[in-house]
Design a protein around this nucleic acid. Structure first.
Lengths: 221, 221
DNA sequence: CCAAAAGTGTTAGTGATACACCCATGT
DNA sequence: ACATGGGTGTATCACTAACACTTTTGG
């Protein structure tokens, strides 16, 4: 019995999340060429020789955002035969969390437009990227409840209200302030890091930093 | 800037779990050729033209075990450049759960030996398959606690003791009989399906079937 | 003194755990 | 009658959820 194997192309595509203005945002790139010309698509690209898939994802991410040392996690591998009209392309998807501070979308070599979109109000997307983002949002929601990844979206020092906002934005529901703080407190995750110095027209909040190693599995909510 | 892309080969490898003699078992195949000749390895193989990755996994699985309609879930994609000495090979791993009844390892075309091994006493494995199996075991443990996948390892009708054994085997700990039954009961998952007919030297157990759709997310333990 | 967010405790209800004896059957 | 696994209830403890007022600061 003879079989016809294929040598598919493999890409790494990344769902880059951040928070801005109390909204969860996703980074998209406007395609400059067919197919799906002028549609928005996930950043990503082919894997270079000698490079692991994760390295490829990191490289693409840095090319797009200039950000290094990002939380990056593999999501799922999409490989239906017809998902890209150009031929057999298998996409290993990742999602990344970056802090809103310190990201400036770089002017890119190829002058493609890059923009943040609200994760719950996305434009029409190229390929099956809609599906990939849905998958990423679900994974992110899950991870938020059972691990400490949420802290990846915050600066090193943050207030409890900021932390709560992250949870509310991503899980799309409100939490009771007292219960939320009680829970976080009971987990012994945070270290007091001084008072907020920025002048605000109300009582200044306390600042905290994360004690434990990130990514650790801890049931948060 | 020019980059050198690759057209890696892509395989689907499957960690096939079943339970036998109150043990969690994994199906392995003895390699007949280099590299890793005579080492044990996961079943799997290249993806055919026009076939999705999941279809490939299902096909391989059926070739190995003769079993159809199996619970199959994608695990993770492994793609370090040097993981296979023959060249750039990316492996999309899956895990499968099959009921111990009805599996007979088929005499294979290529006469390779296939055998069940206890998941916690594995032989030396080819490639990075050790790592893949570890990953699969963790995922399985997790899924068992938060979904109804565990029922995939049982026949259509089963006793509560059999169900509890599945949990004990995979999570590697004992549960209190009364509390376990109370919990399962409170989830309203099971339908009474008559008494055990097989003659046993003790009070015959009641049989149950699963009510809800499988794979559904339900916090079990 | 007003506006705005920070910070803080108690109660009731729900779910988790620990624990021991009788039941139905085959030999 | 005895051996074997099947089947059941209660009490305690821990966690969750609901709920409102005082504090600190800037303007």
């Amino acid at each position: 019995m003879t079989r016809i194997f294929e040598r598919p192309s493999v890409t790494a595509d990344i769902v880059v999340f951040t928070t801005q203005n109390n909204e969860l945002k996703v980074l998209l790139i406007k395609r400059g060429s067919t197919p799906f010309k002028d549609h928005w698509a996930l950043p990503g690209g082919f894997i270079n020789k000698g490079e692991s898939i994760e390295q490829a994802a990191k490289r693409e991410l840095q090319e797009e955002t200039g950000v290094k040392n990002v939380y990056l996690e593999q999501l799922y591998t999409f490989g239906k035969p017809k998902r890209d009209p150009r031929g057999r392309i298998i996409t290993v998807s990742y999602y990344a969390l970056i802090k809103s501070k310190g990201v400036k979308l770089e002017a890119r070599e190829d002058a493609a437009e890059a923009k943040w979109f609200p994760a719950y109000k996305l434009p029409e997307l190229a390929f099956d990227h809609q599906e990939i983002i849905e998958y990423a949002k679900q994974r992110l929601q899950w991870k938020l409840e059972y691990t400490t990844v949420g802290f990846q979206l915050l600066p090193n020092e943050f207030t409890l209200t900021e932390l709560q906002k992250i949870y509310e934005i991503i899980l799309n529901k409100k939490f009771d302030k007292r219960n939320f703080r009680k829970k976080i407190n009971s987990l012994d995750l945070l270290k007091y890091a001084g008072k907020m110095t920025r002048k605000v027209a109300h009582r200044p909040a306390k600042l905290y930093t994360l004690k434990k190693r990130i990514g650790e599995i801890v049931e948060i909510l």
